[in-house]
Design a protein around this nucleic acid. Structure first.
Length: 487
RNA sequence: GGUGCCGUCGCCAAGCGGUAAGGCCAAGGUCUGCAAAACCUUUAUCGGCGGUUCGAUCCCGCCCGGCACCUCCA
């Protein structure tokens, strides 16, 4: 990028968009809460992954050297429970779902972060932090457990906008006899017989959920780092507790910009395990191309809710198809017109209005919805050039520039990673399965129709077309013959 | 009960003080033997009522409707 842009980020902490200024010029340190590996990822996980992937990619475009850490929570009650249900070692569970996670993320075209620490590889860092918290009077051991004393931290609640009195009056906090205060949360949990454990000064046990992020972010990014992200549901208590832990241990705030993505909803309700209204990513991929899911997820601003439905995915699929088809024809034309020299193409691409519009949108708190609107405008400029039977040199160049700009912006959003054939094949296969159509029958009817057309027997040709339409088949007569697709 | 968020064209979705981006769908047109694709054109005053302002979808208040967090959760 030639022109420096001012990036604005909505900071959960302040509730406002703020100008982004990294702690160290030219560098960004970013930590995003990953997943607990006890099950397959659902669409909600996909949203978070895609949102921060787009953010990661864009920070790099702005020229930052980004140190991006995304953790795996690989020790937790749910993992132990799942292992017991299956009668296998808990490490079998974590290994299986880490592999599945990588498979899903790979298909979604999520870039690998700089570092992906496992909680269990950092137990010693957590123990050190817990000891510091005890020394500083922010935590206390109690019968093998260690708890954080929430009332020892005067700013508790400042991230999520809660105050201790309100939390206390809410009757949903579990009562635990060993806690001094019901608001206190576990830093270390004593293990029960048969459960995995690590040795600690307080006996055998395992870490509480929140401590891993505080310990690993400090270890890998420093006591103060730029961006911490995750789903909105993590604001309280997880991120609130992280702030308490880190501030308690170091005396200063760990995070400069807190970013939270909105939920994926089903019929206006949050998609969640407890409501049992979730879809796994791999279920979606059985019907839709990963890029369709990706485009759907970035078709609105990352902070708001997004309603998940087959209808909305189909709409995203249409949009993606239009882009793929235009890009495909542009490429075909450019391949044919190799005699046209295209000097300084990259420079013209970067200078195209799509790039400036894209940058403006992204600098406004990563507004991907507006970015996609600009892509549609570019597409609208590209298509008329593609209409021309034999475009002149200027048009060829225009096609090269606009399609290049579209590809570039698309790639920055993680799109156009597939081939047009693969992309269209996914939609075709789904429709074929849903309609139960027989391709051989379609081909036969098309042949009959084309025979009639060759004899200029339009009545028969149209009758065959009507039959095909009744089947949901749409014909396209092109210079290289007739192709068909499903409605 | 406490705390936030949201309500923009039939549908999805930006904008958030100066008279509403984009997409889907629909209609008309160009093209086509007819179609399809593509292109062109057309479609909203922003949940309701007050207030602040020269001016409000955008600020404030109240109301109606929906959601979320306060418990594991992306």
């Amino acid at each position: 990028m030639t022109q420096p842009k001012i990036l604005k980020i909505f900071n959960t902490q302040s509730g406002k968009k703020e100008e982004f200024v990294p702690l160290i010029p030219g560098r960004v340190s970013m930590y995003v809460c990953g997943v607990t590996v006890y099950d397959y990822c659902h669409v909600g996980h996909a949203r978070s992954a895609v949102a921060f992937d787009v953010i990661y990619r864009y920070l790099k475009r702005l020229g930052y050297d980004v140190n991006f850490v995304r953790n795996f929570t690989d020790i937790d009650d749910k993992i132990i429970k799942r292992a017991n249900e299956r009668g296998v070692p808990w490490t079998d569970i974590t290994r299986e779902f880490i592999d599945a996670f990588y498979e899903d993320m790979g298909r979604l075209n999520i870039e690998k972060p700089s570092n992906e620490p496992l909680a269990t590889d950092h137990i010693h860092d957590m123990l050190a932090m817990i000891s510091t918290l005890i020394e500083r009077g922010h935590a206390y051991p109690a019968d093998g457990d260690v708890f954080y004393s929430v009332r020892s931290f005067k700013d508790y609640g400042q991230l999520s906008g809660k105050n201790i009195e309100d939390l206390q009056s809410g009757a949903r906090i579990d009562v635990n006899e060993t806690k001094k205060d019901p608001l206190d949360f576990a830093l270390w949990k004593k293990s029960k017989p048969g459960e995995p454990f690590w040795d600690s000064p307080w006996g055998q046990g395992r870490p509480g959920w929140h401590i891993e992020c505080s310990a690993m972010s400090a270890k890998l990014l420093g006591e103060t780092f730029d961006i911490h992200g995750g789903g909105k549901d993590l604001v309280f208590p997880h991120h609130e507790n992280e702030v308490a832990q880190s501030c308690g241990a170091t005396g200063h705030k760990p995070v400069r910009y807190w970013m939270h993505n909105g939920f994926v909803n089903i019929d206006k309700e949050k998609m969640s395990k407890s409501l049992d209204n979730f879809f796994t990513i791999r279920e979606i991929f059985e019907k839709f191309h990963p890029e369709t899911l990706r485009l759907f997820l970035i078709s609105c601003q990352y902070r708001g809710p997004i309603d998940f439905s087959q209808h909305n995915l189909e709409e995203a699929e249409k949009v993606a198809t239009r882009f793929y088809e235009a890009l495909e024809s542009a490429q075909a034309l450019l391949d044919k017109r190799t005699e046209v020299n295209l000097p300084n193409l990259e420079k013209d691409i970067e200078a195209h209005s799509l790039l400036s519009g894209f940058d403006e949108a992204m600098c406004d708190d990563f507004n991907t919805a507006v970015a996609i609107a600009h892509m549609n405008e570019a597409l609208k400029a590209l298509n008329p050039c593609l209409q021309k039977a034999n475009p002149d040199i200027n048009n060829v160049r225009k096609i090269a520039v606009i399609s290049g700009a579209l590809r570039k912006v698309g790639n920055l959003l993680g799109l156009f990673h597939s081939s047009p054939e693969d992309f269209k094949a996914t939609a075709f296969n789904r429709k074929k399965a849903e309609s139960g159509i027989d391709p051989a029958k379609v081909e036969a009817l098309i042949l009959e129709r084309n025979n009639a057309r060759a004899e200029k027997n339009w009545a028969v040709a149209d009758q065959k077309r009507d039959e095909l339409i009744a089947l949901g088949v749409i014909l396209e007569d092109g210079p290289e013959g007739t192709t068909w697709k499903l409605k």
